[in-house]
């Protein structure tokens, strides 16, 4: 995938499949039950896919994050989790602490 137009095809396909869900939701209006088993399955698949991606991005990163040692990445995650819970589940505190930890350890290690 080196040709310049391929990313544009990818974006257009991503946009189309994404709007498909939204458009279908508008079309369906209140006529379908969003708490039914099909949507519960869809939701589980989305959770699993995202969890799999997060786990892979941290453990087996592509690109620049691979330059940070695994121990540094895991320390960043641990600090983010501690800060998140210590601050009463404040997202900004958790993310900020994790990122600062990663950047500092990258400089030090």
């Amino acid at each position: 995938m080196t040709e310049a137009w391929i990313p544009w095809i990818v974006v257009l396909i991503a946009a189309a499949v994404t709007y498909f869900s939204r458009g279908l939701g508008v079309l369906a209006g209140g006529r379908i039950d969003p708490s039914g088993p099909l949507f519960e399955w869809v939701s589980c698949v989305a959770y699993a896919l995202l969890a799999g991606l997060v786990s892979r991005m941290i453990l087996l990163p592509q690109g620049p994050l691979a330059d940070a040692p695994l121990a540094v990445r895991l320390a960043g995650v641990a600090v983010a989790l501690v800060a998140f819970y210590a601050s009463g589940r404040n997202l900004l505190a958790g993310i900020g602490a994790g990122l600062v930890c990663l950047a500092l350890l990258t400089i030090l290690v």
Binding site: I9, I13, S21, P34, L49
Partner: peptide, 26 residues
Amino acid sequence: YAVGASLLVVAAAVALTNARLLPMTV
């Protein structure tokens, strides 16, 4: 895309991730 997946895989993975938008829109 970055790991070189085929267009079909990219489309299916994005579609499944974003299918949650359907019940939200509803």
